[in-house]
Simulated assay, not measured.
Amino acid sequence: MKGVVLAGGLGTRLYPLTKVTNKHLLPVYNQPMIYYPIQTLVNAGITDILIVTGGNSAGDFLKLLGNGKAFGLKHLNYTYQEGEGGIADALSLAEDFADGDPVCVILGDNIIEGNICRAVRAFRHQGSGAKILLKKVPDPQRFGVPELDGPRIVRIEEKPKEPKSDYAVIGIYMYDADVFNIIKTLKPSARGELEITDVNNIYIERGEMTWDELEGWWTDAGTFDSLLRASNLVAQTGANKLDLGDKGVRSEREVTSGVKA
Rank of each mutant, 00 (worst) to 15 (best):
T197Y: 12
R13L: 15
A235W: 00
T21K: 02
C104S: 13
I111C: 05
S128E: 14
I153D: 01
G66K: 07
L233C: 05
Q81H: 13
K19E: 15
E215R: 13
I132F: 09
P32N: 11
Y173I: 07
K23V: 07
K69L: 09
G245F: 11
L65Y: 02
T79I: 00
V259F: 14
G207E: 09
K241N: 15
G85L: 08
G108F: 02
L133C: 12
N181C: 00
I156M: 10
L25F: 03
L64G: 04
R152E: 15
K241L: 14
I87S: 12
R191M: 08
I38T: 02
A177K: 11
E213M: 13
P32T: 08
H125W: 10
E215G: 14
D99G: 11
G9Q: 04
F97S: 05
K159H: 12
V20I: 07
L233R: 08
Y35N: 13
K247I: 04
A88S: 08
E84M: 12
K69Y: 06
R13Y: 13
K187F: 00
V145G: 01
L91T: 06
V20R: 11
A221N: 05
R206V: 07
A190C: 00
M209W: 03
S57Q: 08
L26K: 04
I202C: 01
R229I: 09
N56I: 08
I183C: 05
L244M: 12
W218E: 05
P160T: 09
F180K: 02
V199R: 01
R13S: 15
S257T: 15
N30H: 11
A70M: 10
G55M: 02
G8P: 03
W218K: 02
I170V: 13
I170A: 00
K164D: 10
D176V: 11
L91M: 10
S257H: 14
F143P: 01
G207K: 09
A221R: 02
D166T: 13
L242R: 11
P151F: 06
N181F: 00
Y36W: 13
D139I: 08
L14G: 06
D212E: 12
C104D: 03
L62A: 11
L228M: 11
Y167C: 10
L228S: 15
K2P: 01
K164H: 11
A90E: 12
G258R: 06
I183F: 06
D243N: 15
S57G: 06
T53R: 02
K135L: 07
D89P: 00
N232W: 03
A98R: 01
D96S: 09
I34H: 01
E147S: 14
E195W: 03
G245H: 12
S231T: 10
R155V: 15
K159T: 13
A90P: 00
T18M: 06
P138H: 11
L6V: 15
L50D: 02
V199A: 04
G3W: 02
I202D: 10
F61H: 04
Y29M: 04
E158W: 14
L76Y: 02
Y78L: 07
K131Y: 05
A58C: 07
G129P: 08
Y15S: 15
E162N: 14
I38L: 14
G144C: 10
